[in-house]
Amino acid sequence: MNIFRLIGDMSHLLAIVLLLLKMWKTRSCAGISGKSQILFALVFATRYLDLFTAFISAYNSTMKLFFISTSLVTVYLMYFKFRATYDANHDTFRLEFLVVPVGGLAFLVNHNFSPLEILWTFSIYLESVAILPQLFMMSKTGEAETITSHYLFALGSYRALYILNWVFRYYFEGFFDLIAVVAGCVQTILYCDFFYLYITKVLKGKKLSLPA
């Protein structure tokens, strides 16, 4: 564990808590892509199956359980409890266009051709593109609530911090995982346009609106 990874994990945690708080306080999931949230639930459910096969640390297990459970709660809130506020008309990204190619790639490019390892690889690849339905939705509506942009900033920062963690681990531990690093870089690049808008607009007190 190094400082980059710890702050990265805390940023990820903060993102999830921010999203749940936003929904709970406003009793609404307006502006949030349910499709991205379904993908995140799928990401956690397929990645953390090693909870049953290996014990790393209490921290590791607690975080894994937290991510799985909160992602399921988020999907439940969006599709059941606050369904009336879900903006389905703007959430039109086709999930099969992500899940099918990513599934194929996980079969072809992985560390070890075993069920758990393929599911882990699938999860890493899927996470890198899981935010696309959310970004697509924002580009259709042309704006995002400020709390939603804070959520996205924390969520995007987490993988960027993990890149620093991988640089650190490469130099000091000789650790290098090509699959995680490439997918993590792709994931971070997808957020760059949003990061730019966040820094130039939201941090200056303006609402995040996209250029027409």
Binding site: R5, D9, H12, R47, D50, T53, A54, F55, I56, S57, N60, M63, K64, F67, H111, N112, S114, L116, E117, W120, Y162, N165, D177, A180
Partner: peptide, 10 residues
């Protein structure tokens, strides 16, 4: 990195 050892990153 065998899965039996688990993944230490989240």
């Amino acid at each position: 990195r065998p899965i039996a050892e688990g993944h230490d990153e989240l």
